[in-house]
Design a binder for these strands. Structure first.
Length: 673
DNA sequence: ATGCCTATAAACATGG
DNA sequence: TCCATGTTTATAGGCA
């Protein structure tokens, strides 16, 4: 009976279990109190960062732990810097046998990653985790560093001006100053964005009433170009000498102008690279809340923050010693730096993407944010916030295919090796049945760039985050006549998703099963035979029933009413984007960004979950739809309901995946009301 | 603990 | 008989 049983050996196997699940479990950390204080941006950011780092690390740790052993057994490879030299002594407290594991991630260079990937020493999931971890760490560190540095620079400049009082240089310096200020702004923006992102993801709790966040003022949305600039600066740090450059080049990480300001030289002993840090802001206005005295970007909470290094130190001095000894300027450190840069870049790209999405969302919803507008690039964070509060319901992005992560076809950036390395293609090994839903929450939605997604799924053997039912419906709805024969449906699957070019027997069986099982799919006898159509009512009905009955529904509703939905939607969207890329790449269940997402999610806890998870329905699996539902359901604004929905659907070519919201709506209303 | 949902697998039916 | 198409049953895992 199995027609094609032979054709495709289901090699998938349970291998691709959701690493996510596991990860999640471990990834819980202390959750920082909600940062609502506007003024304490820095602190909040720092805390968040911390949290994030920890979570990411933990997650990675768990995974790595398991596989490390394997890895070692299979291939005791020590790349350039797979293992950090020190090793044992450190981490009195963090004693996880993971020393190697932990380090590995950080130390891995892009090349290394590739190697590993190819050798499959590490599972895609692991790699992703690593990547993610790195990203988180990097971003944070970078941001902080930049921030501080810039501040320092600014300060220095000012001091110079005052002390030197060189008339001849006045102009130049002023120009410099301006440049610095600009940079500072940029950094601040970046930071804020990051913050917002976190917020949006639920890490930070946004108080319903508190619509205005301090961030707003600053956040203007960074432009990729700006980011790149920043980036460049960072990268060039060493080569550049602040003194020489005028405007842009204010950041000189390597050797700032220690000489200029004697006061700042306290930590001269530290690695040259970070001297500036040590200098830090003397009179800086901002941050500095944490690391009170020995504030060093690489030293926090008594732990060495160097990627992959969690050495614990009693005092700052020993830390400095460690820093100079273990993290001196060598190949390894350099490689690590490089990786981090890449990671940061990736994050920046993601950020840009998110902004774009936000903009699109806002535009779509006609939300007049405080912001500028429509240009894709400059989205505003502010708008985010506002959105969450003001337009919670519609926040949901237009439905379309899930975001494309790193679209295989569209390389994010030249540097993004990490990404490229972890391309879907390289990971598909574990492609198997869709079974595991990593949490529906993760999968979500849909972003405007359907095309990209399409391409992504068309080329990457990544399991699409949608249920069979959703896909079938999509296929049918996409057809001109809204009806397809079984075979046509099959063809759609194979055409649209590389993933379905394998294991035909399995998924075809699933398709048939779904067609028969769900009432929403109606078989119509046709001249040519039989075709399948979609009964939207039924489709929509499905949800309601479930939901209505369950208490969860109530919860959902409640949350949805509040800002919850918006938040969740946004969160989901963002997650989707972030995750998906990685996630997708990593064979279906990999926790790349997911790990982060998980962590965040955990942090967020109920709020998000309730809101988003539409419980049973949408979640079916991985469908992104859920988010939409809630959004729609929300009674907040009439407009929201319909506007977003209709628009969404129609707007995108592939509203398909978005369809869910449709039924959601109905359901929600019916049941709920 | 329970119920619902989805994914899978597979048996079975039917018609060409 | 083979195959495509459908239907149905069973099982398992996730989730609320």
């Amino acid at each position: 009976m199995m027609q094609e049983s032979g054709t495709e050996a289901t090699s998938n196997g349970p291998a691709n279990q959701n690493g996510a699940a596991n990860v999640e479990g471990g990834a819980r950390d202390a959750r920082p109190r909600s940062v609502t204080t506007p003024s304490a941006l820095d602190i909040a950011a720092a805390d968040l960062i911390h949290l994030q780092q920890h979570q990411a690390l933990q997650v990675a740790r768990q995974i790595l732990l398991q596989q490390q052993q394997q890895q070692q057994q299979l291939q005791p490879q020590q790349g350039t810097g797979l293992k950090s030299p020190k090793g044992s002594e450190k981490q009195p407290s963090l004693q996880v046998p993971v020393s190697v594991a932990m380090m590995t991630p950080q130390v891995i260079t892009p090349q290394r990653m590739q190697q590993i990937l190819q050798q499959q020493v590490l599972s895609p999931q692991q790699l992703q985790v690593l990547l993610q971890q790195q990203q988180a760490l990097m971003l944070q560190q970078q941001l902080q560093e930049f921030y501080k540095k810039q501040q320092e620079q600014l300060h220095l400049q000012l001091l110079q001006q005052q002390h030197v009082g060189a008339q001849s240089k006045e102009q130049q310096q002023q120009a410099q100053r301006l440049a610095f200020q600009q940079q500072l702004m940029q950094v601040q923006q970046l930071q804020q964005q990051h913050l917002l992102n976190l917020q949006r993801q639920g890490l930070l709790t946004i108080q319903p009433g508190q619509t205005t966040l301090p961030l707003h003022s600053l956040t203007q949305g960074m432009i990729p170009a700006e980011l790149q600039q920043l980036w460049k600066e960072v990268t060039n740090v060493k080569e550049e000498n602040s003194s020489s450059n005028n405007s842009h080049r204010g950041l000189d990480l390597s050797s700032p102008q220690p000489p200029k300001n004697p006061l700042l030289n306290q930590h001269a002993s530290t690695n040259g690279q970070y001297m500036s840090h040590s200098l830090k802001r003397e009179g800086s206005t901002l941050d500095d809340h944490h690391h009170s005295h020995h504030s060093h970007p690489l030293y926090g909470h008594g732990v060495c923050k160097w990627p992959g290094c969690e050495a614990v130190f009693e005092d700052f001095q020993s830390f400095l010693k460690h820093l100079n000894n273990e993290h001196a300027l060598d190949d390894r450190s350099t490689a690590q730096c490089r990786v981090q840069m890449q990671v940061v870049q990736q994050l920046e790209l993601q950020l840009a993407k998110d902004k774009e999405r936000l903009q699109a969302m806002m535009t779509h919803l006609h939300v007049k944010s405080t912001e500028p507008k429509p240009t894709p690039q400059p989205l505003n964070l502010v708008s985010n916030v506002t959105l969450s509060k003001t337009a919670p319901p519609e926040a949901s992005p237009p439905l379309s295919l899930p975001q494309t992560p790193t679209t295989p076809t569209a390389p994010l950036t030249p540097l993004s090796q990490a990404y490229s390395v972890i391309t879907p293609n390289s990971l598909h090994h574990s492609v198997g049945p869709m079974r595991r839903r990593y949490s529906d929450k993760y999968n979500m939605p849909i972003s405007p760039d359907i095309v990209q997604n399409k391409e992504f799924y068309m080329n990457a053997e990544v399991r699409p985050p949608f249920t069979y039912a959703s896909l079938i419906r999509q296929a049918i709805l996409e057809s001109p006549e809204k009806q397809l024969t079984l075979n046509e449906i099959y063809n759609w699957f194979t055409r649209m998703f590389a993933y379905f070019r394998r294991n035909a027997a399995t998924w075809k069986n699933a398709v048939r099963h779904n067609l028969s099982l769900h009432k929403c799919f109606v078989r119509v006898e046709n001249v040519k035979g039989a075709v399948w159509t979609v009964d939207e009512l039924e489709f929509q009905k499905r949800r309601p029933q479930k939901i209505s009955g369950s208490p969860a529904l109530v919860k959902n509703i409640q949350t949805s009413l509040g800002y919850g939905p918006a938040l969740s939607a946004a969160f989901q969207a963002s997650m989707a984007e972030n995750n998906i890329p990685l996630y997708t790449t990593a064979s279906i269940g990999s926790p790349t960004l997911n790990s982060l997402a998980n962590a965040i999610r955990e942090e967020m806890n109920g709020a998000m979950d309730h809101g988003n998870s539409n419980g049973s329905d949408s979640s079916p699996g991985r469908s992104p739809l859920p988010a939409m539902h809630h959004i729609k359901e929300e009674p907040l604004d009439p407009e929201d309901h319909e506007g977003p929905l209709s628009l969404v659907m129609t707007a995108n070519h592939s509203p398909d995946f978005g369809h869910h919201r449709d039924y959601d709506d109905d359901q929600g209303h019916d049941d709920m009301l």
